[in-house]
Write a protein that binds this DNA or RNA. Structure first.
Length: 584
DNA sequence: GTAGGGTTAG
């Protein structure tokens, strides 16, 4: 071996030894310069790769500038490293620089990384431009580029185009399928994601762990415990490696399908955990109303050297405190967030605090909390006032509620929720004239309430019900059964919550003689079709007061446990009471 | 000679 190559290889070894650690890299760099390799492109390229991994972007850029004539390989390296290390803006900057350099041109390697960065930025316009460029330069049908494009369009919310790119792929890789499944799931189209998963299997491809992570997320979204637990068994039976993401997806699955105990079982069996896994489990307790367990687990994570909590963890703990009425714990956790972990509370955390104080009846303190934020220059978000408004309604503080609702309507006139709240508060305080005003204005401005629906799974099939639904083939039996159930409930004390209050703004529904909410239909159907087991219903909106009261009685007369997941949390009805203790 | 796409928690 020639002396120069030997030195070169020794230098290369030194860089490898340094790894992605800034200090060591700088030492290796100094050594390169001293030994006369300060301008050797291959060595500098390796150095830059590690510098990017060490998140030392400025340093990486400095080295980049010292390379006399960057070649395609170097450009692709920095573009890939920046997109992988989540520096999407820097990635785009290098891409621009590459385009303006005369001796280099982008390839399929370049496009995959650049498109990923556009996806991370949700930069629709830029991404479409890159897509065009890829097509023009002949890389539009590269299978890697196309897989990245599917993910890009899905992440930008354009599922239609994602689908189109996917459909046009001559060869559909497992990764391309995964991109589509996850893209659909992330856009809230869980059912469709599951259909695509079945198509993937039919096409003869073997799903991998990424497929399962997305499918489990889709099952968690739709409440599809049948497929979800099948996937769980499949993973175990096939000896799939149970990685931390799969484990977390399973914790989330069981939690969101109503079985917090099974979620904990999976969590305890996980060999490796990280902050996401702990957060998922804390959040599981929180949404099931087990505030104490959520806080205990958080404390355990702190005391027993678990992973360092992040801002997402704090949302989970604080919302658990809010739903569990744990005000003291919540205050202490909120303080620790910045004091011990140096995290700056964001709007989400502020909302949790207002929610927690407001629910617990500390309206003044909640109000002061918002004003303090205002005073410190943090523009108060509508979400804060919405939380405050909920508290006003809950604690019958009507004057303040009206004031806040009006303010919210001024801020977000298109949001039907604010109008509904205003109307409900007027109704509760007996101001019928005002109720009609609000209702008229909603009709005039064509503001509609969100359509509520409930889903229940029976023997691995899912059934969807909407208000006053009569589309189900067994509609008559369901309604008849519901009638008998309700009259038995009335015998033991159930009194329907005043129609006046509940349905003030629901104009067209008054035409129905029977206008059972979707969750009642789903519960009746579940009780009718199963024997002796708990039934689980998933609703897209919050459960209403009347259904909440009815289910307590139904749990007695049917002698069953009824689990309802609403938009925010779980309700476990059993023997006449609910796990939320009417605090939701 | 060196390199590639997707996937988790509120």
């Amino acid at each position: 071996m020639k002396p120069k190559q030997a030195a070169n290889s020794a230098a290369y070894e030194a860089i490898l030894r340094a790894g992605p650690r800034l200090n060591q890299l700088q030492q290796a760099h100094a050594h390169l310069i001293v030994t006369g390799h300060g301008h050797t492109r291959s060595l500098l390229t390796k150095l830059i790769t590690f510098a990017c991994s060490a998140k030392a972007l400025a340093y990486a850029h400095l080295i980049f500038l010292s390379v006399p004539l960057p070649d395609d390989f170097l450009f692709n390296t920095v573009i890939k490293s920046t997109s992988k290390s989540r520096f999407p803006l820097d990635c785009l900057a290098y891409y621009r620089r590459m385009l303006s350099s005369s001796d280099v041109s982008p390839s399929n390697y370049t496009f995959t990384s650049v498109i990923k960065s556009c996806a991370d930025l949700s930069a629709v316009g830029v991404g479409k431009g890159v897509h065009c460029h890829a097509v023009v330069t002949g890389f539009g049908f590269d299978s890697y580029v196309q897989a990245a494009l599917v993910a890009f369009y899905a992440k930008c919310g354009d599922v239609g185009v994602a689908r189109k790119v996917f459909d046009e792929m001559p060869v559909k890789s497992v990764v391309a399928w995964n991109s589509l499944v996850s893209g659909l799931e992330q856009n809230g189209l869980g059912e469709e994601a599951i259909r695509v998963f079945y198509q993937m299997r039919d096409s003869g491809l073997e799903p991998d762990s990424a497929t399962f992570v997305s499918v489990l997320a889709a099952c968690a979204q739709t409440g599809g415990i049948g497929l979800g637990s099948w996937v769980h068994r499949y993973i175990v039976d096939k000896g799939f490696e149970m990685n931390v993401k799969l484990g977390t997806a399973l914790v989330n699955l069981y939690s969101r399908c109503g079985d917090v105990g099974k979620a904990r079982g999976v969590f305890d069996e996980m060999e490796e955990t990280n902050v996401a896994a702990w957060t998922a489990m804390i959040s599981a307790y929180g949404t099931h109303g087990c505030g104490k367990q959520a806080v205990d687990l958080f404390n355990k994570m702190e005391d027993e050297g678990g992973p360092v909590p992040n801002d997402v963890t704090f949302v989970a703990v604080l919302s658990a405190c809010a739903h569990g009425g744990l005000v003291e714990e919540g205050r202490s956790v909120y303080k620790r967030m910045s004091k011990r972990y140096g995290l700056v509370p964001r709007v989400e955390h502020h909302v949790c605090m207002v929610d927690m104080l407001g629910r617990a009846g500390f309206l003044d303190e909640a109000y002061r909390f918002i004003h303090q934020l205002d005073a410190t220059g943090k523009a108060s978000s509508p979400a804060l006032w919405t939380a405050m408004l909920g508290a006003c309604k809950m604690h019958r503080s009507y004057d303040l509620g009206v004031e806040i609702a009006k303010r919210l309507i001024a801020l977000e006139p298109e949001n039907p929720g604010h109008h509904v709240m205003l109307s409900n508060i007027y109704a509760l305080s007996g101001k019928t004239d005002e109720v009609s005003h609000v209702r008229d204005r909603m009709i005039k401005n064509n503001l509609r309430k969100q359509v509520g629906y409930s889903v229940i799974e029976v023997e691995k099939k899912t059934y969807l019900f909407s208000m006053g639904d009569e589309s189900h083939p067994e509609t008559r039996e369901i309604y008849r059964y519901l009638e008998t159930l309700m009259s038995r409930c009335k015998e033991i004390g159930y009194a329907p919550v005043s129609e006046e209050v509940m349905h003030q703004v629901e104009e067209e529904e008054k035409e129905y003689a029977l206008r059972y909410h979707s969750e009642k239909l789903a519960v009746a159907f579940g009780l009718l079709k199963t024997v002796d087991v708990a039934i689980t219903v998933v609703k897209n909106l919050r459960i209403c007061e009347d259904c909440h009261s009815a289910f307590k009685y139904i749990s007695i007369v049917s002698n069953r446990q009824i689990i309802v997941r609403d938009k925010l949390r779980f309700h476990h009805f059993q023997n006449g009471s609910c796990s939320c203790l009417d605090y939701w």
